[in-house]
Design a protein around this nucleic acid. Structure first.
Lengths: 142, 142
DNA sequence: CATTTGCACTTGCAAAATGCAAGTAATTTT
DNA sequence: AAAATTACTTGCATTTTGCAAGTGCAAATG
């Protein structure tokens, strides 16, 4: 982590997730149930493997994600959002709402958020509750 | 503007403002009444002059900001957020709320948003109204 | 139980983006 | 008329990103 550019909370936040990849990894963790290195590599945007490694490390160092033992295999690593990471959901949701207004959204994605739009606050709370539950279920951090 | 990585609305959005500088320029336009090239250069984060030029151009090409004649001088250029740019306020506000939870925020900034926090929806609407009014007042785009 | 496959990375190198310092050209001020 | 402002541009060094190939351990396969 390099030195802070300023004391501005927006600036400090952007130093953590203000790049073209971090929020996509977080999106995958929240909306697509992705949780392993291989899962992230497979995303449509085709992140380079070394970039993925560096982003995962940075996100971990910044307390946004954490590594867990994978229940299926010792060869796998399970990545989970921390509470700090889960709290990024409202930001991602607002980005989605903005995008919806100015881009054409694929139907399947649109469908996924239609319910949430009806009652934003409640829907966000529900998704965040679920993510938090996941966090508590599996106890062994690696 | 390079080719889209995917159809994902989050990804498409990040291709516009997913970098370490764009949202700071937008922050300056919204919260600090900055509106000229020189204003942006003076911000605490010390953006390099060529980077500022490239970001302003990209934001303009993406319809987030627009250039206006400056009322004081022909040597100056007035940058304004478009409606599309104004609509980014909720995202920035959520980033602020997140930052508030996980960072120490300077008192002067904290004060600025305390009112807004009490009634988020209304406060955002009010700020956005003001920005829209600015947009309509000055008619001559350059 | 030896071999292949899967998984999470690392490494080396090319290309692109960023950052710094110094210009430039058109105003505007003195 | 000269100096200062303003919005940039340019050249070059540094950093980050991207691609392709490789590594080492775990697990599945013959």
């Amino acid at each position: 982590m390099s030195k802070k550019r300023s004391e501005c909370p927006i600036s400090n936040s952007l130093e953590i997730f203000g790049d073209k990849w971090s929020l996509l990894i977080i999106r995958d963790l929240i909306f697509y149930q992705k949780s392993t290195y291989g899962d992230f590599l497979k995303s449509d945007e085709k992140i380079a493997t070394n970039i993925l490694a560096s982003r995962l490390l940075a996100l971990e160092e910044n307390g946004i994600i954490e590594k867990r033992e994978h229940p299926d295999s010792k060869a796998k690593i399970l990545y989970r959002l921390t509470h700090k990471g889960i709290d990024l959901l409202p930001i991602i949701f607002e980005i989605h709402l903005w995008a919806e207004k100015y881009f054409t959204i694929p139907a399947d994605i649109q469908e996924m958020v239609n319910d949430a739009k009806k009652n934003k606050e409640v829907a966000l709370k529900t998704i965040m509750e679920q993510l938090r539950k996941q966090l508590e279920e599996e106890v062994m951090a690696v």
